[in-house]
């Protein structure tokens, strides 16, 4: 058995909206080991975004325990949480979330800026990350000069540049067309092949099929947690 990278134990998340309080997650128990490719599925409102926020240390659970790489996240203050997000987590968002008017290279460099990496090393590592996603010749382009698929690949480069423990992808293909979707999924496959731990949040079954494990959420609870043999690519992979 490979070491457990992150573990949620009896996690509950509750939002207080005036008089009523909404329970977004209840009694979540989940353990992910290093090198897994997990898809978290659920309809909208099932709590998958809340789960993603908690996994990504953007939000803290109301109750329960979240251990990431051996650290109990509840014990961390704001600054430590920022450091955890910086070093252990790489985010890929549905809407790309690149900084506008800023070159691809600079966008990819940004996590390293906050990590305090020296400029020269930063540029080297950012270039290597862009090369990995196949955009080394687009490094000077601004987000507005890139296609959706390219922007998302820049986002992936930004997610992997700090060499994080997990890549958290929240509906990464939600704003992409079929071709770009296929390319994105191939890229994630490739990263998984290199030993990366990936957690993919999606509501599309054929996207979830690429993962080796599928966790289904409904009404804030885990309703199933199954290992599967990842299906082949939707299109014959000419990529890489």
């Amino acid at each position: 058995m490979r070491p457990v990278l992150l573990a949620l134990q009896h996690v509950e998340k509750r939002y207080d909206a005036g008089e009523i309080s909404v329970i977004a997650l209840r009694e979540i128990n989940l353990a992910v080991t290093r090198g897994e490719f997990v898809a978290i599925m659920g309809a909208s409102g099932s709590g998958k975004s809340t789960l993603m926020n908690i996994l990504g240390c953007l939000d803290l659970p109301t109750r329960g325990k979240y251990t990431l790489a051996g650290t109990d996240v509840r014990l961390l203050d704001d600054t430590d949480l920022a450091a955890v997000r910086n070093r252990l987590i790489g985010f890929v968002f549905q809407s790309f979330n690149l900084i506008p008017r800023t070159s691809a290279l600079r966008n990819v460099e940004l996590p390293l800026v906050y990590a305090g990496v020296k400029p020269r090393e930063r540029a080297e590592r950012a270039r290597a990350a862009l090369q990995m996603v196949g955009l080394e010749n687009r490094s000077g382009h601004k987000p507005s000069e890139l296609s959706g698929g390219q922007q998302q690949r820049v986002a992936v480069a930004r997610a992997i540049v700090t060499d994080p423990a997990i890549i958290l992808a929240d509906e990464p293909t939600g704003n992409l067309d079929t071709t770009a979707t296929a390319e994105m999924l191939d890229l994630l496959d490739h990263l998984h092949g290199l030993g990366r731990t990936i957690i993919l949040i999606t509501h599309e079954p054929d996207v979830a099929m690429r993962a080796s494990r599928v966790v289904r959420l409904s009404d804030g609870r885990i309703v199933s947690d199954e290992y599967q043999t990842p299906s082949a690519a939707m299109h014959p992979s000419s990529h890489r």
Partner: peptide
């Protein structure tokens, strides 16, 4: 976005 990728309050 900056906070998500690791910017601290002070940054």
């Amino acid at each position: 976005i900056r906070k998500a990728i690791g910017a601290r309050r002070s940054d």
